[in-house]
């Protein structure tokens, strides 16, 4: 077997071989959408997935593979047709502040400033003004938007808007962060920059992260593990890859490219 099977402890980490607790478990998730006119769209089929505490798991799949739907089911915005999602062993019943979501099209509140957007989570949950301003400021600084608190979304570039989205999700202190192709609308260079920022932010405040993307380089750069979905509907989870590469990673590292080749080959076989 190749160098990527089995589990190796990360370099420099004090983690033992003991299995980390599962934060999220997807059991037999299937989803069928019924469009008007009785057309059935079978989007997900028998998804089994296990996400460990504080790991960064990437769901990788080409467009229209159902991965966004899976993320929305985990977020609680959709209900599965079959199966269920367990968070810390308890079934997920709907959306909640324990799972934060970063949207592909940013979805910022255009009538609120950066500060107004980021403090929204604590505000909805009854935190008083001074405290939530303090919390929001911390995350605005963390994502690198210090000085832009009073700006409105229409005054920001795409990358900045998404950083607001990330800060907004983080400020609510969720146990799990869900990111739905967050950099899909950005150009290639901004995207690479944001990937590095994502890793920096995750390292600064560790929590369980589920990241959905169609970009294989992005996946290998960020992931502790990659769950690959094939491209046909209904979406199925084909393989889960361990990515024990030491951080920070370079797109040109030997092991990076080897894993990239391996995943690309595997996905071509499933046609």
């Amino acid at each position: 077997m190749g160098p990527f099977s089995g589990r190796k402890p990360k370099k420099g980490s004090a983690v033992t071989e003991e299995k980390k607790a599962s934060k999220i478990v997807c059991e037999n998730i299937s989803k069928t959408f019924i469009q008007k006119g009785k057309q059935q769209v079978h989007v997900l089929e028998d998804i089994q997935l296990e996400v460990r505490s504080n790991e960064l798991l990437v769901i990788l799949g080409p467009g229209q593979s159902g991965k966004s739907t899976l993320l929305r089911i985990i977020a609680g915005l959709e209900t599965p047709s079959e199966g269920r999602v367990l968070l810390d062993g308890k079934p997920v019943k709907g959306p909640g502040k324990d799972r934060g979501l970063v949207f592909q099209s940013y979805m910022l509140f255009f009538w609120r400033t950066v500060m107004g957007n980021v403090e929204m989570g604590p505000k909805l949950n009854g935190v008083d003004k001074r405290e939530r301003r303090r919390i929001a400021q911390h995350y605005i600084d963390l994502v690198g938007l210090n000085g832009f608190e009073k700006h409105y979304p229409h005054q920001l570039s795409g990358g900045m808007k998404q950083r607001v989205g990330i800060a907004r999700a983080y400020a609510n202190n969720p146990e799990v962060m869900l990111l739905d192709e967050p950099f899909g609308q950005l150009d290639a260079q901004t995207r690479m920059f944001m990937e590095k920022e994502t890793e920096r932010i995750w390292q600064a405040e560790k929590r369980t992260v589920l990241f959905v993307t169609n970009n294989i380089d992005e996946a290998i750069f960020l992931a502790d593990r990659i769950a690959a979905m094939d491209g046909k509907l209904p979406g199925r989870m084909t393989r889960v890859y361990d990515v024990p590469l030491p951080r920070p990673r370079e797109h040109t590292d030997m092991e990076f490219l080897e894993l990239r080749q391996k995943i690309t080959d595997a996905s071509q076989l499933v046609l």
Binding site: A75, L77, G96, K97, G100, M107, L124, N125, R168
Partner: peptide
């Protein structure tokens, strides 16, 4: 989707 944002923030 703006309503989704409120829901995932716990509103």
């Amino acid at each position: 989707e703006l309503y989704d944002v409120v829901r995932v923030l716990g509103g």
